[in-house]
Write a protein that binds this DNA or RNA. Sequence first.
DNA 1: TCACTCCGTTGATCCACGTCAACCACAAAT
DNA 2: ATTTGTGGTTGACGTGGATCAACGGAGTGA
Lengths: 248, 248
Amino acid sequence: MQVKAAIPITVADIKSACSQCNLLELCLPFGMTETEINRLDELVGTRRRIKRQQHLYRAGDPFEAIYAIRIGWFKTDVVLEDGREQVTGFQMTGEMLGLDGISTEAHSCNAIALEDSEVCVIAYDKLEELSRQVEGLQHQFHKVMSREIVRDHGVMMLLGSMRAEERLAAFLLNMSQRFAARGFASSEFHLRMTRDEIGSYLGLKLETVSRAFSKFQEEGLIAVQQKHVRLLDIQAMRQMIQHPAAIR
Amino acid sequence: MQVKAAIPITVADIKSACSQCNLLELCLPFGMTETEINRLDELVGTRRRIKRQQHLYRAGDPFEAIYAIRIGWFKTDVVLEDGREQVTGFQMTGEMLGLDGISTEAHSCNAIALEDSEVCVIAYDKLEELSRQVEGLQHQFHKVMSREIVRDHGVMMLLGSMRAEERLAAFLLNMSQRFAARGFASSEFHLRMTRDEIGSYLGLKLETVSRAFSKFQEEGLIAVQQKHVRLLDIQAMRQMIQHPAAIR
DNA sequence: TCACTCCGTTGATCCACGTCAACCACAAAT
DNA sequence: ATTTGTGGTTGACGTGGATCAACGGAGTGA
């Protein structure tokens, strides 16, 4: 059923590497000088298009490259032997995938496209080599990894200490903020993932996610229709996380 | 009440840096050549002793160094405005602390000693500089960061998809394996953290943790007395995680 | 030795979320 | 236009773990 989803792109496309890309601000080249960025172009040799529902990589695949998302959305997940799935993250344009593979030289999670997507392939050995020469690249790469660690700690807080509605509020605010950072509307957006996937990420069942959406709607915090969400009272949602209404 | 816990060590002590340390296998120098390790010695300038319950660093502190634990145990935690605490990890000898600080140049969590401890201070700017010169150091450092990301994903799986007893089993097996890696007994050890701290880490209340300990004891899986734990049936505990008994 | 504090255990009760089930909306296929 | 499948919503009910409460044991300091 699943087709291995590697569609290399023609040489013509390769031209427009980092130096031509409009994602500079969010991606690996952030904070680098123009000269440095030009050297990055050597690195980003190929692109890959991944169709919806296809894997960019699977747990166990040998690790060779990390990926920067140019277009589209992904989820990463870990699956236990008995089939339980935990979504560990949703990644969008300008974000990096594959960092999990460095430690054991094999990927430890699955990366699956939520919609037809395109990534820049960054050969890892070349990245290490270049980041020994280009200080800005080295530093930015370390920041990207560290940011992932900090994000993960936030998810732990969410999973370990927050109740269902707080989790959903935190999730929606996080989406909002990431859309904003890319110049998209921050209070109206289209979710690429299902209720089930959101639930897996938030440690909730899909019914609970659905009910929380409905509750927020009743309370006038948001307007939802299927995957389309409009945030009507961001301030109230922020307060929900910081000063939970529940007596405790 | 809390005293800032920086007790620099005399010059005499500094001599015995990485090249003399018996933690090579677990720590930053792993996989590096002897010559490379000698250069690491330049890096590890000072040590710090941290007394039980004192902070190595706090959320918000400016980020300047990462730390390798020489002796002792730490916990890291994140605290919400309303006081809810989430323990994000327990770190032991040979493990690294402070990686969270790279992304924003300020620490994003607290690191607190669970017992009187000692760490090697690794100035971060020097680490970046040296790892541009020493390939083995660069690679090992990246592996350490990546390993932290993989670990975090494991914790997400635990918090998002496992039930109370599975979480505790996973926790104990993880402890066991880390003791083993350091040449300590893998089936009998002393926990440095309280039930409350374990609970925070596992997303459970301390009472639930305590009950799970008691249940395991009744079932003959472990022998517990306060913080002293003996694992009697590691195999059964492994199966508990992979093939949960509960009908689902 | 006693008093005090912190930590752990255990029981009784409660409730947030899971489970089970029915139904509905929308899109793609025929 | 009809069928089929996937994903989302909502209701009724059950339960795992939280909450509340009491007590006990270990360590510490006077």
